[in-house]
Design a binder for these strands. Structure first.
Lengths: 238, 238
DNA sequence: GCAAAAGTGTTTATATTACACCCATGT
DNA sequence: ACATGGGTGTAATATAAACACTTTTGC
């Protein structure tokens, strides 16, 4: 409880929690992963931290999140949602208010973006993907922030169709169900899941099939008219 | 679209949307009202704005919200929840990131606090209560902010027990139902409402009754162990 | 044919809704 | 006594859960 009475005004930073669903080894359930950046200066030199940076004076908050995410990790997400503003006095030696965004990114998008950077020779340094369920001690209050992002993700998957953000445009119902199972951490009945999601009217069946080791599964796509997630009146602000 | 490329770093402000439920005339349905403060300087001199102010360098965000609310309106709320961080480049001539909080306040608490200030001779100036459904043009982007706060209130009343924040410790089921009806803007079946809320296990019946013009209604109180609203892992941060 | 996943059907339990009806009190 | 809101009962409907079963492919 060191009441730091710094006379310096608070600076505004922006960070992003960006989740992807990856399987470490094949035939294992997919895990929620997120990229972290190793700090190369004090405070918390050497510890892992969320990608982020300072807000530019003439830059929208969401743009700052996109920019700093790209600068630190080379990744770009099509959809960012504000998570929370963290402004505790003692979360950093200097007074920093962090506006945190969160986003989902498909595994194949991550792979493509990483490959593109590798080909161009501008692969980002000090970036690594971590299992969201077993993180090391992170810099600042970033462990707390990830916990809160996970909570929001889990509660939002129930009433929103954000699972879409982790899937390619066409997918089987089993793939969709696996996303839900990974996020919620429990198995779902395939039959009931199918009925619920088919009955919601947000999915289109295509006439293509995913041919696998057994009976082919029909591919579906999301209705593009339906919003990715409900954000209320703020959605118009883009 | 004036891209103000101000070199000044963003300053952090805090504002509060604080709702109360009041009936303008008796025997009319209660309306959601909120206090606004008339600006006495540019920008937006003369327009009404949300209570708020600058974040002090050594002050927690929530404390800043409480403090500025008290300084501008004389009101104090026991429960504040972060709503959103508004940081648009053009929302103010200077670059301001506003962390907005929202809260609920009982009508009788408002009356008591107003009376206390009047007795002490430090009644706040330039404060007025407005019907949330029909606001004038407000300063900055505050109309948008109130709209968003209303949306959050309405969606949260469904899965949380925030209605409590608008009621005295003991209340009848009809009073509770009226709160829900005012927030949701539609009538609810008294019989079904009773069963739902009784079945939720968050209410204790007392052995006291509200004696009115007709059959006395039993008074209930909320189970104090149950959280006012679910905020996930952040609840521990107080 | 057999294993395994896709997809359908059926039954049961549980919530939601609508609305009829009785109860207790002030006037 | 009667009007009025408090409070209970009940039937119809919708939704969720559990699980048996059939279908279609690769091997």
């Amino acid at each position: 409880m060191t009441q730091s009475t710094s006379p310096e005004p608070a600076r505004v930073a922006v960070s992003t929690v960006i989740f992807s669903l990856r399987r470490t080894d094949d035939s294992a359930p997919a895990e929620l992963m997120l990229p972290l950046v190793r700090r190369t200066r004090d405070p918390f030199d050497g510890l892992w931290a969320l990608p982020g940076g300072w807000l530019d004076p003439a830059e929208e908050l969401e743009d700052a999140a996109s920019r700093t995410l790209a600068e630190t990790t080379g990744l770009s997400a099509s959809y960012l949602e504000q998570l929370y503003a963290f402004g505790g006095v003692d979360r950093s030696p200097a007074r920093v208010v962090s506006i945190v965004y969160w986003a989902l990114l498909r595994a194949d998008e991550v792979d493509a973006q990483v490959a593109a950077h590798a080909a161009q020779g501008d692969a980002p340094e000090n970036v690594e993907w971590f299992d969201a369920a077993s993180l090391p001690r992170l810099a600042f209050d970033h462990n707390e922030i990830v916990e809160y992002a996970l909570w929001r993700l889990r509660s939002k998957v129930g009433y929103s169709r954000i699972a879409h953000g982790l899937l390619p445009p066409e997918f089987t119902l089993a793939e969709l169900r696996e996303v839900y199972e990974s996020i919620l951490g429990r198995r779902l009945d395939p039959a009931n899941f199918r009925r619920q999601v088919e009955g919601s009217g947000t999915l289109f069946p295509t006439d293509r099939f995913r041919t696998g080791s057994h009976r082919p599964a029909r591919l579906y796509r999301y209705d593009p008219d339906v919003e990715l997630a409900e954000r209320g009146p703020l959605t118009a602000r883009h």
